[in-house]
Each structure stands twice: as structure tokens, then as C-alpha cells.
Amino acid sequence: MVCAQVETSPRRCWQKVLYERQPFPDNYVDQRFLEELRKNIHARQYQYWNVVFESGAVVQQLCSVCVFVVTWWYMDAGVLSPQGLFGAALLTSLLGYVLFDAIDAGVGRRESGRTRWADLKSMLVFTAFTYGFSPVLKTLTESISTDTIYAMSAFMLLGHLIFFDYGANAAIVSSTLSLNMAIFASVCLASRLPRSLHAFAMVTFAMQIFALWPMLQKKLKARTPCCYVGVTVLFALVALMGLASVSSVGAVLFASLLLSISCLCPYCLIRLQQLKDNIHGPWDEAEIKEDLSRFLM
């Protein structure tokens, strides 16, 4: 239509190309320019309960850290015996191991091609190394001030929470770093415990709660969402109760934190999503959609 108008005039129709010489200045555009403007093409519409369900991962991880710290507290106070903790951890691990295979009826195991012998070997390596190093761990930080250790552990656990893979596709996510930070924190805290057996039990427990438990959670979430919700709520309640037995103020604060993450934050997200105003058009820089990773190999 625009061209039709232009044809009546003696001038030629403007084309958006640079390879032809045209009687227009370089920065000239005509009325068709803004026709290609698009808004919010990538913006997703969230459902409230879906977001709440997804925030379960964050809640779970917060609760894991909380449970770990509370357990360490009990161990340090001498309320919990290392044998008891190790036994309970062993039982829950076995339960979880059976559950892990039962959920998808062994499909995941067959796909990954991992044998039970490899699992046993890993388990043996964990226990043997932790047991062997526990006397070293015990005396490792003797001369370092307790406050330094606490600060370091807090810093490392925070890092663990920040870098944890919650399912988002972001550059900051690094499950390796997150797990390593958690192990570092657990070793630091374990070295404060009174005996080397305590340290051993503590590090094994940390391994279970920070490495094995998220794996089970992921599978639960993918296969049986209802079960996952139930487990999450239960776990959060356990963590809260544990924390309440140590410090009631802390429990209240932690509960409000969990609530705000699981209920308030999704609400805010959905409200703010409506205000989104992304514009797209031909001025956008080119985006490579194809997967180029095969060229990099």
C-alpha cells in the first residue's frame, strides 16, 4: 500500500537494504518501520499454584541446611550420640535407596547403566575415607578461632544455597560448586565436634543430606508430584520443630521465611509479570537458535 503511494511520486520505493544505492540518507526509514514491533513474545503466564509447587525446591534446600545445622547443634551439645545419628542416617539412606529405584521401577537405573556394585563401591569409598580422615579432621582447626569457623561455615552454606541447581537455566548455577561448598562447611563444623567419631558421623550425614537427598527429591518431583508436596511439607515441619527445640525465635523467623518464599514470592512474581513490557523487532541483535554444541566437539 505504501509502495503504491510512492509509485505515483517520481521517487523510487525505499528498500531496507544497504547493497543498493538509494536516494535516501543512510538513517532514513519509512512508516513501515514500527509495523514489525512485537511486545512480550517470550513472557510466560504463570499459574499461582504451579509457582508455589516449583518453589518447593528452594524450601527443601533451606530445610536441608536447617536440619543439618540443628543436627550439628545437638551433636555439639552432646544430646545426639554419633552412633545414633549414623544408624538413623544409614536407615534413612537404605530406605531412600530402595525408594529411588521403586519410584520409576528401575527405568532410570537402566538408562544410566550404573550397577549396584558401583553404588556399593561409592558408599565404601565415602565411609572409608571419612573414617580414615576423621582424626585428622578432628585436629584440623584446633588452633583456629571458633568464630572464624562459624563465619566460614555460614558463608559456605550461603554459597551452597546460592549456587544450588533449583532447575533454573542461569549461568550462576553450578551444582558442583554448591556441593563442594556444603562439604567444606560440614568439614569445618565437624572439626569443632568433641571426638573423631562425631566428625565421622557428621560428615557422612552431610553427604547424605546435601548429595543424596536432592537426587531423590528430583526424582520424586518428576514422577509423583503429590508425594513430593507431602514430603516437602513434612520435611519443612520437621525442620521447624527441630529449630523450635533449639530457639523459638529462630523457628518463627524461619517459618516466616519459608512462608514468604512459598506463598508471597509467587504472588509477587505473578503481579509483577503483568507489568512486563518487552519490545522486540528487527533491531534486535541476531539470535542463534540452533544448537551449536556439535561444532564445538
Binding site: S122, F129, F133, V136, C188, A211
Partner: peptide, 21 residues
Amino acid sequence: CSYDLDQLFIGTLLFTILLFL
């Protein structure tokens, strides 16, 4: 690089020990 779980565990354990020593 993606490491195995046991590699990560032992590596970090050794890292902590070496760092403090």
C-alpha cells in the same frame, strides 16, 4: 568438567585438609 559424586567428595575433603595445613 562434570565430576562424579565420590570424586567431588574426596577432592573437597583433601582440599579442606590441605588448606588448613
